[in-house]
Write a protein that binds this DNA or RNA. Structure first.
Lengths: 121, 121
DNA sequence: ACCACTGTGTATGTCCAGTATGAACAGTTG
DNA sequence: CAACTGTTCATACTGGACATACACAGTGGT
């Protein structure tokens, strides 16, 4: 489990953790049912608050990407690969709906946006 | 000049104003060199603080979309249509660079993103 | 010269999200 | 029983967003 916190990101820390861990689950880089380090351990290692980690864990659990068991720990949810691919798409689509509002707001057409993605991505 | 403030947006008010006005300039919906309503007028009409409007005006001026003259007012910058199209592209590209970080972070390929834009936009 | 506008700058204050620390509670396991 | 685990609660700090108020300086019409 690799997490890098950027102080220059405009995303809050809990969101950075959420997204990075979600990516690792969605990429099948974490073993299904593998135990995650405890929130106290991650907090200590990253030099941040347990509450911040817990918030990220809550989002991941809401996404059905991990599950937590009081007294036991937090674990990677097990999903068939095709479900993970679908979840990754859904994750991207959900975010895209928010981003799209901006481009619509400045009258960027679909073709213009596709062209931008093609060139800049 | 039309501005609608959404309390449900996750964008700060000054940013909503910035983006909406930028769009109107970039779409040539505002006459070059037309005078904008004063920051006190807009503040009163929208029921917000003059400082908030001023912040939006500052961003717009930094974008070279308006210019301000103490004692006179704020005006729409005059640009040839092709320059406005280029500016609109640049505006979108700049924003896209921020948005792209997320999609890269969850390993969405260019083709996947194009497909999402095609389907959802 | 005066007035009513304009933009600009400063001071002060409130609110809220994000984050922090610490402590306590409850569950699990060896 | 101890050492872990997750969970909850209390309290506090910081910084950004936003607010109000006031003062300054520029512009233009009368």
């Amino acid at each position: 489990m690799d997490i890098v916190i950027s102080e220059r990101s405009d995303m809050p820390i809990y969101e950075q953790i959420h997204v990075q861990l979600a990516a690792q689950v969605l990429d099948s880089r974490l073993e299904p049912n593998a135990m995650l380090p405890s929130i106290r351990t991650v907090a200590r290692e990253l030099g941040i608050s347990v509450i911040t980690i817990k918030k990220a864990w809550e989002l991941l659990e809401a996404d059905d990407l991990i599950y937590t068991r009081p007294g036991k720990g937090a674990f990677v949810s097990a999903h068939p690969p095709q479900d993970l691919r679908a979840k990754r798409q859904a994750f991207a689509v959900k975010r895209f709906h928010r981003d799209a509002a901006f481009y619509r707001g400045i009258s960027i057409t679909r073709d213009e946006l596709i062209s931008i993605v093609h060139r800049e991505y």
